[in-house]
C-alpha cells in the first residue's frame, strides 16, 4: 500500500501543482554511528559449483559504499547426509567451495567461525521448477511504454513453493527483487511479468531469466530485505530482515534450485 499512497500523493501534486508545491529535498540527518557488524551472504545451488560465501562488515550511514571484507574466517559447508567441505578464501572476504554439488531435497548448513564467534544457518534445497517459456510483452502506465519479459511456468501442486526471479540483461544481474509464492495459485500455470525498476529493456538486449526455487525462510528474508532497502520513516517498524543465521549475523544462506531460459528483445 506504500505504492498506493505514493500514487495518490503524486496525483495530488500533479493536479494542484499550480496552487501549491510539495517538495523533496536532500537533508542532513544526524545519525548515530554504529559499531561494525558482521554480514554473511552465501548460497549453494543444484548447478555445478564453485559456490561462494562473502563476509563483510557494516559501515556508518554517512560513509561511502565501501564495505570492509572479513578475512581469516573458518567457513564450512555441509549437508544432512554427512558431506562437508572447508571453503578457501580466494580474495579477502570471499570464500569458495571446490567439491560440493547441491542436490535438491537435502538440507545444507553453513558454519562461519570468525573472531571467536560461530554463526550458522541451514537451508533446504527445494526441487527445481522449469520455465516453460518466456514471452516479450509491453506494459504502459500512462505515457511510458516499457518492454517487459513474461515468465510462464507450472507450479507443482500440493506443496508450498517460493520463487525468486533473477533477470540477467546482457550479462549483468539486474538489481530488483521479484518474489512470488503459490499461496494463491497452487498447481496453476503461472504467468509472471518482470517489471524492472530502473533500466528498461531495449531491442537487441539479451535477457536470461532464472527461476530460483528457494525455501520459506529465504523467501521471507528477501521480501523483508526489499522493503528496507529504501526505507522511509512512514513505516512503523523498519527492521533488519529476519536472517536465518544464528548469533545476530546479518545476511542469509540460501540453498536453491534453479532453471534458466533465454530471450532476445525484439
Amino acid at each position: 500500500m506504500k505504492l498506493l499512497r505514493h500514487i495518490l500523493i503524486f496525483l495530488m501534486i500533479a493536479a494542484c501543482s499550480g496552487i501549491f508545491l510539495s517538495c523533496q529535498k536532500v537533508i542532513d540527518v544526524d545519525l548515530n554511528s554504529s559499531s561494525p557488524h558482521i554480514v554473511i551472504e552465501g548460497y549453494i545451488s543444484d548447478q555445478p559449483g564453485p559456490y561462494w560465501v562473502r563476509i563483510s562488515q557494516t559501515v556508518n550511514y554517512n560513509q561511502p559504499n565501501t564495505f570492509p571484507p572479513v578475512s581469516g574466517a573458518t567457513v564450512t559447508l555441509s549437508d544432512n547426509i554427512g558431506n562437508s567441505e572447508l571453503l578457501t578464501e580466494f580474495i579477502p572476504g570471499f570464500y569458495m567451495s571446490s567439491l560440493m554439488q547441491g542436490v535438491p531435497g537435502r538440507t545444507y548448513t553453513l558454519t562461519v567461525l570468525s573472531n571467536g564467534v560461530t554463526y550458522a544457518a541451514s537451508s533446504m534445497m527445494p526441487s527445481p521448477v522449469a520455465i516453460d517459456y518466456l514471452l516479450q510483452n509491453s506494459f504502459s502506465f500512462g505515457m511510458d511504454n516499457s518492454k517487459t519479459v513474461e515468465v510462464h511456468f507450472r507450479d507443482p501442486a500440493g506443496i508450498d513453493n517460493y520463487y525468486r526471479f533473477v533477470e540477467i540483461k546482457n550479462g549483468v544481474q539486474q538489481q530488483f527483487m521479484f518474489l512470488i509464492n503459490d499461496q494463491l495459485q497452487d498447481g496453476n500455470e503461472i504467468t509472471s511479468t518482470l517489471f524492472a525498476d530502473e533500466d528498461t529493456l531495449r531491442t537487441g538486449d539479451s535477457v536470461s531469466v532464472q527461476l530460483r526455487s528457494i525455501d520459506k525462510n529465504v523467501y521471507n528474508y528477501f521480501r523483508s530485505l526489499s522493503q528496507v532497502v529504501s526505507s522511509s520513516s512512514s513505516s512503523t517498524s523498519p527492521a533488519n530482515p529476519p536472517s536465518n543465521l544464528s548469533n545476530g549475523a546479518l545476511g542469509y544462506f540460501s540453498a536453491y534450485a534453479v532453471r534458466t531460459k533465454f530471450i532476445i528483445i525484439q
Partner: peptide, 13 residues
C-alpha cells in the same frame, strides 16, 4: 526508526 549504518548484499543492493 532511522538506519544507523548500512551494508551490501551482493545479490541485491
Amino acid at each position: 526508526t532511522f538506519p544507523s549504518g548500512k551494508y551490501r548484499i551482493l545479490e541485491y543492493n
